[in-house]
Design a protein around this nucleic acid. Structure first.
Lengths: 188, 188, 188, 188
DNA sequence: AATGAATGAGAGTTCATTCAT
DNA sequence: AATGAATGAACTCTCATTCAT
């Protein structure tokens, strides 16, 4: 059911998709659909949840491989970007439709985003512990983690611009460079 | 009318806002509303257009002040973040609802985003010309411009997280540092 | 104003034409339009009235020419068919839209149709008086008059069929023959 | 549903009848109504189609009875007039509202009218074959068929005049006489 | 467990009409 | 006399949801 709904939400957005269409696409009747859900919003919740679950699982899988030194961070970013790239449409749907979730469900889904941030934060902290990078405070760790996450999302929601100019490899390389070295500038 | 619509879109989103509510909020009747627009989507277009216009004008105003050296970039980023901060709700609405625009209107609005990117690119190039930063290629300029823009947006669309941890000043300072120096790391 | 309204009614029918369009087509503002009428139906009334007036005047003009004998009838039918032919669109509009008139106005307009019938009846009676035809009773006169009138109207409202098969001349000749001789048949 | 719609269209015409009224008159909700149709025009189409179907079926039923000689034609006309008489309101609705059909549906409905004409033409030709009448050419057959059809319709759309003066029997008798013998006149 | 016909509140939109200017 | 901005009732149509089967 979720698969069908995602397909439709990608195509026409949540509001423009009818429950009838979702039932049909999922291969059962509207009556049966309502055996599994209580309202249309439930579907959106299930969809968002499923997408997060998949992104997180895939990312966790990639982070598992034991890298060392600065590579740990580089590979993590690359892996994350790759996951986002593979699930572009799904990520985009979530980005655009999550706001339509009822309050409680939204909190729940945002919690998943927090978890994602923590996964990235952990990579950064692990690098710091190893001594390959030097991040003096928690705030900076958080900020860098958020930046990485959002730079992943950007790849989808600004694709009409960014993917015109960069391949995923170029984008990854440049963003990692930027992340580590910043803009080359005269000392102030 | 646009003001009223923005208020409502902020509160409940485009789809959940009725034309009648917009008319009422704007202080005229539904009939009069339809003297000015041809369809509900027209309102969304007017709203998005107005928001972009205001963001761009305010930013242009701030970029006018003649700064020199690396300050040119720093102040530009700060000014941009400030504008976004002042117009948080509006920017968020545009981010979340622009996708509901009819194709043609969407293209038109995205063109405005391209213009914004070019404004930021210009600041970067001006710094490079002055010699205070060293950006070797166009791709990097573009990427940095996009990053700055999106870091502005994230201040609104991740505010439930970010504004919990940072004040606007902290956020600005940290992001500028990050932008210029990257993460402090052992040379590879 | 009537001219403009007729044009529009021909094109799209009474209900599908808006008062705004009528005002525009007539070259004045909606406000001014309502100086002359009290409701949209008034326009329909004026239109129907004007059309009848014109049909009647034209017909009267043709009937004036002094014909004698059976020619009196033949020429009258021919003249009437010609008038209908010249005013096809107008006649059709009246046929199709008169039903939308308010009751009283409808009666008034139907009275004009009665007058038309009487004009034709008079021609028949004049022929009878002259002795060129022999119509024994009033009922038959009435019936023949109605038949002639409707055969005129048919030329417009069945034109998609009839005008494919006949020119106006053919149609007139055949109908007159039919009228006078009926179908050639074995005596019963 | 069609029955209900016909009743309402008879009473107030197509444009003045609302979909809600039709639904109510038909005994179901507006939602259910729209399960069966896609637009209000669909109802008009169904109505026109149903009326034609019924007129044709009834007529076909009456034409079946094997008559011979001139009676074949006489009885056919009488049967046709009787059918029209029995379905006066319905026929009138179709006459007045068919023009509001979308183009394609209109063509389809007019095709039915062509079929009706052909049914009458066939009766005439059968009589001619039998030798009881003598119609020299196709054009005349067509014309007579059209005349008969329209004289049927007249019975409804001029009833405010004709039914004041004639009973159906008188009307039928007189029209048949007229049809066969024409107006009694001195040879020219 | 599964269906899908039925519901009706509510959406966007139109347009005859008014009336202050 | 002439205007046209403003009105809002009324229209057609949609769709999330229910419930008898």
């Amino acid at each position: 059911m979720v698969k069908g709904a995602v397909r439709l939400f990608i195509e026409k957005g949540f509001h423009r998709t009818t429950t009838r269409e979702i039932a049909k696409e999922s291969g059962f009747s509207i009556g049966t659909l309502y055996e599994y859900i209580r309202s249309k919003e439930d579907i959106l919740y299930l969809v968002c949840d499923a997408i997060y679950e998949e992104v997180r699982d895939r990312l966790a899988y990639h982070l598992d491989t034991n890298n060392e030194g600065i590579d740990r961070l580089k590979k993590a970013v690359a892996a994350y970007f790759q996951v986002i790239h593979d699930m572009q449409d799904e990520v985009l749907v979530m980005y655009q439709e999550a706001k339509s979730l009822p309050k409680e469900a939204l909190s729940y889904v945002l919690q998943k985003e927090v978890e994602m941030t923590e996964m990235i934060e952990k990579v950064i902290r692990d690098c710091a512990k190893e001594g390959v990078i030097n991040v003096d405070d928690d705030a900076r760790v958080k900020l860098v983690a958020h930046n990485i996450l959002v730079q992943g999302h950007m790849w989808t929601f600004r694709r009409w611009q960014i993917q015109k100019h960069f391949s995923l490899e170029e984008y990854t390389t440049l963003q990692v460079e930027q992340l580590l070295q910043g803009v080359d500038h005269r000392p102030i």
